[in-house]
Design a protein around this nucleic acid. Sequence first.
DNA 1: CATGAATGAGGCTTCATTCAT
DNA 2: TATGAATGAAGCCTCATTCAT
Lengths: 188, 188, 188, 188
Amino acid sequence: MSKPKDKRKALMKSALELFTSKGFDNTSTASISRSAGVATGTLFTYFDNKESLINDLYLETKMEFMGIFPPMPDDIIMTEEVVKVFWDLSINWGLKNPKKMKFIVMYKSSPYITKMTWDELAEDMALLGNIYQRSIDEGVIKDLPIEYLMEATTSHVYFTILYLSSRKIKDQQVIDDLFPTMWDMIRA
Amino acid sequence: MSKPKDKRKALMKSALELFTSKGFDNTSTASISRSAGVATGTLFTYFDNKESLINDLYLETKMEFMGIFPPMPDDIIMTEEVVKVFWDLSINWGLKNPKKMKFIVMYKSSPYITKMTWDELAEDMALLGNIYQRSIDEGVIKDLPIEYLMEATTSHVYFTILYLSSRKIKDQQVIDDLFPTMWDMIRA
Amino acid sequence: MSKPKDKRKALMKSALELFTSKGFDNTSTASISRSAGVATGTLFTYFDNKESLINDLYLETKMEFMGIFPPMPDDIIMTEEVVKVFWDLSINWGLKNPKKMKFIVMYKSSPYITKMTWDELAEDMALLGNIYQRSIDEGVIKDLPIEYLMEATTSHVYFTILYLSSRKIKDQQVIDDLFPTMWDMIRA
Amino acid sequence: MSKPKDKRKALMKSALELFTSKGFDNTSTASISRSAGVATGTLFTYFDNKESLINDLYLETKMEFMGIFPPMPDDIIMTEEVVKVFWDLSINWGLKNPKKMKFIVMYKSSPYITKMTWDELAEDMALLGNIYQRSIDEGVIKDLPIEYLMEATTSHVYFTILYLSSRKIKDQQVIDDLFPTMWDMIRA
DNA sequence: CATGAATGAGGCTTCATTCAT
DNA sequence: TATGAATGAAGCCTCATTCAT
């Protein structure tokens, strides 16, 4: 007797696997079901439709990723040490979860982003935005549009993870060595 | 009467338009033909198949982009001034050709890259690689893996174009202001 | 409600009907589905593709045909009486199943024969070959290449069925009268 | 400067080649034109359509085949010697023109036979029919329906040619050895 | 909740034929 | 006559989704 939600998890897992290896459109819902060991119809008892599955998968993956960051004091500023902590946490999570990382990137440049997801992203932005603003005010990072800085750093982190992943590099030393590209990019 | 190759051009144009707005898989060959004002079969007199159309479109777009860079002396080094020239040329072409830019990015992370295209890219890389190597040797940029530096800069340029495009910003002043994120990222 | 496999049977029946009346290439999968009263896609839940449908239809038809012959003692020889039994069984089955007969003939000269089917045929041949060899050794049939004799007789039986079918002749008397053309052809 | 009708001949030749190797439906008119070294449209200046080309090709091939038989006295009878002459002529022509032979067989069991061709065949039949009738009356061949005997012999000749062709056998000795299967089949 | 056979719209591609040059 | 680009109907097949069990 399988626990309730077991099948949902299996479907999510298969979906992640297949979407990242074959792309959204070359992955049929039937293949996801098959790979998860459930019937074709079962997928639709857990998700309204394929798009919904993709969005749910994104939301949960994103939440898992956001969960790795420790709570921050309200008045934190982006010093080199602080940014290095984020860098290490992000890169290491990405290297341990390459498919999840790839999925997040794929999703963001896909036509599946819905309004809901956009709102969700905006929320993240708002929180982070404060930190960036304060850091600019303190003169520790460049005085450029906040959105630009946020997205540029995010983008650079993703890029670095993809670079290391594809070369199967896991050395902390390398991660340390690459950090200055990040920090110099934004520091004042 | 229409000039020869007129239809081919129309198909290319429609394809660029539709692929960038709806994605490769959500763009049917029929919709491309319709949008180009030709019969469904006509597309296949100019391209063997959908994949072939995508590859041709990439190759021609890439060539157009590469064509904007002036010839360089063999012993050129990546000083701030030199990098700034590339930055300006790239960003401005990207802003004038946002769809072409988007298409290039889309293509590179799609499953449509064929061996031919990979070889073509490898060639580009080899040429640029020398410049990076010399610059590292001269101590003007960071001593990090060449591939990392090349891809990171490329990625950052693309990101910046997408950022500016989506906000319809065309100011040279802004482009100048953002340049330090690029240069600081790699300079020694 | 319909019994399981009802649709498969209906598809097979329609396929036999259409293939024999219009040929393989002038029969669309859509027309088969329509004629069977199912949706276009349904055909493909029972058969991988058109070729597969044709092969399955052949295999099942061939098995049905082979099933009409009684088990033979291992040392049987092709005397006139024995050959007459085969003649009667074959012709009568052919007259009762003219479409199936026509289909078997069509299939054998089509490009749809796959390796599997060839192997299957080779097996039949091997079994029959022994009988022919023994009969030659005993001097009851002509001493000619076994393959020639086997194929010539098979071909003559098919021809006779087609001849009688197209004229709607079912008389046992006629079948008896025509038998000597067969027997004289091969007897010593 | 090519003679008029040169292209027509080239088209006929390519058509024979392609039809016999790939079948009617897997041979496009474009491929015939290409193989004949003419433009796609040119085929349609010589033939109304594909079907017409097939019929013309059949008619000409059939006439060539019929032309190999020497004129016969009006009161000829099918003695063993006479039949042997037909057998030798037919088989040898078939072995020298395997594609033409194959084409004739293909055509007869295809959906391309039109009324015109049927009429043409009926004419042949009428002429030959007299010979068969006289031979039956003289008691030299079996007293069976004339059409049956005519078609059975024709069919057996075709079969033998195909058998020998596919095994690349050209020995006159073998042809002689196989003759009794033919003669015994019909002789009284 | 789970199943999986069934649906049918829609996608890619082929090809006989036409027609302006 | 000859050309070959252009046409668009038609073919095979896929797949998200439904629904009776």
